[in-house]
Design a protein around this nucleic acid. Sequence first.
DNA 1: CTCAAACTCA
Length: 606
Amino acid sequence: MTQPLQPVPMAAPSFSTTTLTPVLIHLLRGASDLASVAATHAKLLKAGVASTLASSNHLLAAYCRCGAMSRARDLFYGMQDRDVISWTTLMSGYTASGRPREAVSVLRAMEFSGVQPNVVTLSTAASACARLADAGLGKQVHARAEVAGCARDTIVSTALVDMYGKAGHVDDSRAVFDGMAAPTRNAVSWGAMLAVYAQNALGNEAIQLFAELRTSGSGPAPNHFMLSSVVSACASVVRLSIGKCVHGAVLRLGHGSNDTVIAVALVDMYSKCGCYEYSRKVFDRIEQPSVIPYTSIIVAAAKYGHVRCALALLGEMVDRGVQPNDVTLLGVMHACSHSGLVDTGLQFLHSMQSKYGIAPCPSHYTCAVDMLGRAGRLEEAFGLAKEAQVEGNEALLLWNSLLSACRTHKRLDLATLAGQRVSEFKQDVAGGLVLMSNAYASAGQTDNAAAVWSSMRQRGIQKDPGCSWIEVKDIPYVFYAGVVSCAGARADEVLMLLDELEYKMREKGYKGRLGSARVFDALEDDGDGGKGVMVGVHSEILALGFGLLVVPKGMTIRVMKNLRMCCDCHETFKLISGIVEREFVVRDLNRFHHFKMGSCSCNDYW
DNA sequence: CTCAAACTCA
């Protein structure tokens, strides 16, 4: 056996007190690995030179850069003097290695030792609180910044904006942002504020703020951070027309190619807005897609029921040497689930560990249980649900989907069991109870169904009202079940059109009613409707009627809904698409339906 | 030539 070639050892630098710092910096500069930092450290000790505060700080920073926090800590506590840079370096090291709790302790110890924080200390501290999502601690840092007179500093303010946002205190973020003088706000500050809105599901506020920046004339040019936040804001509030405008801005500003982050945001935006084709076009322009672009397009394909496509994309990425992660596989499983490929989906669950080295998470089990449940394989679903170690919010989701499956497949025996598990959760009682009463109603036990319903009313439990919306020329119109007034002056026309359509549908054998109130229908739908006893026309039908009036012929009508579509409405949309010869896309709670010539892309499985 | 802020996938 031959020894591998050893690099020629470099001559050990000779240390002297006068040249110490330049030599040290030279050695530490490129050193991001612990071994070389430790070697330099050892040489220093061996040379026996007296370390200065600055040299120790350099060494400390080097240990922090390679994440060797215990070494950094030992060095720090062995130092004779510590200045604000020493303290801040240690804090920043802890924050960067994902230990914000320790960073905050360092801040406390620093205060105790009487060293005054500077702007760098305070921005680091704010960022530690951001990671902790702790607005209480963050507010203390904010107060210290005020006392130190640096709360208006650009970087400190920006870190505070981010911190409040991560803790969910959006108004405080905005207050800090507004407190900054206009010239102090740079591109990062704007980006941080936009991201706060985008991350807190306040897409419209993000869009509004971006518009303010664009119309103000002053202020920084939009960069890729701002643009990706605004695109994802458009996605979260499903504003296709504005999303397209921002896409235009992205292209004009030269971020169209070679910016994968924006491209991924666009893929996601188009898929959430009902335009899978556009998602695909944006994806196809990404060179050498990594796991994240692949995941986003697989998730998009899954939402539209394009299971073959999702599987092909998975194969393609593996062939190209791109490793799928847990989210990718969840996306693939969702695709199987939405198309009823239950056994393929289960294979992924059982082989992901051995084939891809990824351990199944609660979300994978939840998806599999949901998949089995909707296919009517309820015993298997229950078995898997009990076997999976799922807790908290995921467990609620899991048992809720089982409950819903029991109702669909009229398995009252199991429904009671699942209903019990759901009721163990304090939150979202309403959803579970609605499902429970629906299960009774499906099994023909209207008395029990009504009992659950009336107990809900007595206890004052309200559920989310079902609503649907449609965007026309930039403006979203929101419809609630039985309430046509959103159509404004055209409300009567909508009702007339629906009557006419109902007549034509009857000629094709439709037996139901579109418009008039139906008693106890609320027990059979997915929770649409207000009072529980009198339910009028469902919200998506109203949105469709309005869309047929105002969206130019030839254009796809896109309706968004906050709950799952019911079977009745699904049939209705299919029939109407054939009658009026137009295409509709409906975004459900968890997927898209593309109606065309009397049928739906989901093949009636969802 | 040591310490600081913003982004994408279910």
